[in-house]
Design a protein around this nucleic acid. Structure first.
Lengths: 217, 217, 217, 217
DNA sequence: CGTTAAGCGAGACGGTACGTCCGGTCTTTCT
DNA sequence: AGAAAGACCGGACGTACCGTCTCGCTTAACG
């Protein structure tokens, strides 16, 4: 993106003449996002069709096919846009900056409780579950989903754990990237795969186990 | 289901006369399993269709609709059947009985390495990933998948952890059902959502973190 | 065509497995004929679509594509069927047997007046004009149209002219197949190409000119 | 159309401001004619699209919609232009002035043979057949086609027949406008509707039949 | 001689229909 | 009665064009 040779910029020798994005209709784009999200919420992801999105958005099907490659891509971008919008509405501060009260356990428990709330919020549940599912089976979508939705959140945990390391609350040799999976992944799996109930008590327990291990101390 | 009155048979008060499973063709059933698994392996789950399965199995579509409710159910049973078959081939012993050498860490690391092997085995990857994805979005399939494929494996961990508790290697107040998620869920998430690479080193690390925690000891 | 080897008959190695015509639904077939004819009558041939025919006939599009190759073929068969039906309703006699009163001129004038009536009957006009047009541009349809709709009528003229030759009312060396074009083609062209008005007086004149020529006698 | 008040020009009370033909690009016009004719020749009329014409002509679609109302109108004008061009190339004389050697039969046979040549010339066949077809079904196009392409030719026959009447070679009471259909229409129908082969012998015969009738003399 | 308004190439847009694919049901014939 | 076969209705797919609508650009006429 930043430093390209001129030849790259002029003629990316891809197969299909790319549409001119400067002429793109923002009206249509947002109508499509709205339609996609509302349809997934109302009738679920599998019964949501591109035709249905186009119809509800008052848009020609071609306008969708021109800019996206699949229903999953539409929904992914719609979801990302929703997040950005929410971020803008929330003001200039970072949406999620993990608190640092000096007490790692308390901070993690607090944030995980918020996550529990979000995962059980019906507004988010249908589309995010659908995207997660599509991502499991469609690697392209999966990587984009992970990259753009999951990773930013995970990075916040990495930062918080590193701060705890500096404060001497976490051992130096611990890899924060793996550490966070001790509480994030169990929650994720229960949500995705119905392997168990989700509650504040559960996430609190996870934090305790993760910090102190299960072996006798 | 088991004992019906004759009147039931003549005029089934249910909407759909349940098929008589004693007359079911085993030949067809297995042909359908084979076709489903091979198609998912070859062209992927989304492009696998019921018509395609029927055609490859040399079976009428109705034979599939008579016994299964959806493509996902077919694949789920096919997959279960594959497991049972493998179990029979492996001899009378339980497929997976977790080893108990007295050293919990070593035992867990050993089993997780086997799991890593299985997750990266291409024969299993496509269908199990497909089922997992379907399960994320289709709660009915998800619960059946979890119940019949995931849970049996998880129970083995529960047993092993309990044994370790009795041996004093795990604290008494630890809930084994949650404990096992400290190593199972991270691996599952990396596999499902492409959130990171999977290796022996990684699973070894997970076990260490889980046992001893990340806090200073 | 006439003498084929059995292998030819059993497996015509064409591209697409031909559907089994013994299982064809007569209900659908006639519903399609009716829908096609009524739509052409109401909104005209170009605005009649296969989708529209299917919808009005209460039929899946595939059922049309299974049995016909194009909108034109559907309409052609519908039109032929209409003719056969009219024939059956009219009783066992030949639909059109040209009268033979012994007076060729009178007989021709009589029949042509009937043709004028038919050509200006709005029930027949739209579909037959549409078929004629399609036939002009689509040779396959054109030949079928000519063969199955035009020719049978022309043959009646050939027979009548031959009878007149035997009766000494037409010169022996005249080719009846060409002679009939002297009155049929002018009428056809005026109808098809709007090159002039159509009336009883006009067709009467045509017969006179054709019989006696335009040169001095 | 002819005499407009100035007010008409300033604020056209019609719905669409008529384009200013003085600013029209001749380059575009001819590029469109060329593209239309060549496309019809190559892929046939039905598969020729306005988008295709615009693309090949290197022209925006709107430039076509600005000046013509339909694909048929474009082709009609392109065809007329082709004729005028041929006329200009052929020199100042009228393209078709029927010869008058005093022998009506010979003159007609001669001209009809030229027509046969033209009808079988592949350069003319595709577009003229397409236009004829469109004219059958689309009355507006049909009348324009007849008026501007057919009629001028037919008038030449009218003149020649009238001359023959004055020379005593055709009866006075004969209507030349109808007489010419005795040879023109049969040829036209064979060409349009594939009702028979076209040859010099055939047209010669038509002339003989038309002049002397089919009845005994 | 600069302003301005039209025609122009380009192509995105809301639509309609295409011809194909498949879902799920129904019917026929065979075993 | 189950099974193989496959026609049927329905509906979504992804594509092709339709005719309309901006967008900058060029160019000719006017002020």
């Amino acid at each position: 993106m930043a430093t390209q040779t001129p030849s790259d910029k002029k003629t990316p020798p891809d197969k299909k003449a790319a549409p001119d994005s400067t002429r793109r209709s923002e009206r249509s784009r947002h109508a499509i996002y709205d339609a996609a999200l509302s349809l997934v919420g109302e009738i679920g992801y599998p019964r949501t069709t591109i035709e249905g999105i186009a119809a509800r958005a008052g848009v020609g099907k071609q306008t969708i096919y021109r800019w996206w490659g699949s229903k999953a891509e539409v929904l992914l971008e719609a979801f990302l846009d929703l997040g950005e919008q929410a971020a803008r509405d929330a003001g200039g501060t970072d949406v999620y900056a993990l608190p640092d009260t000096g007490d790692l356990a308390a901070d993690l428990k607090h944030v995980l409780r918020l996550t529990v709330d979000q995962l059980t919020d019906p507004r988010f549940e249908a589309p995010s579950r659908a995207l997660a599912a599509e991502g499991v089976v469609n690697e392209q979508v999966g990587r984009k989903f992970t990259e753009q939705l999951l990773m930013p959140n995970l990075r916040l945990y990495v930062d918080r754990v590193r701060a705890a390391q500096e404060a001497g609350q976490v051992r130096q040799e611990i890899d924060p990237r793996i550490a966070l999976e001790l509480w994030v992944s169990p929650l994720a799996q229960r949500w995705l795969q119905f392997t168990g109930p989700i509650s504040y008590e559960y996430t609190d327990t996870l934090v305790d186990y993760a910090l102190y291990g299960i072996a006798p101390r």
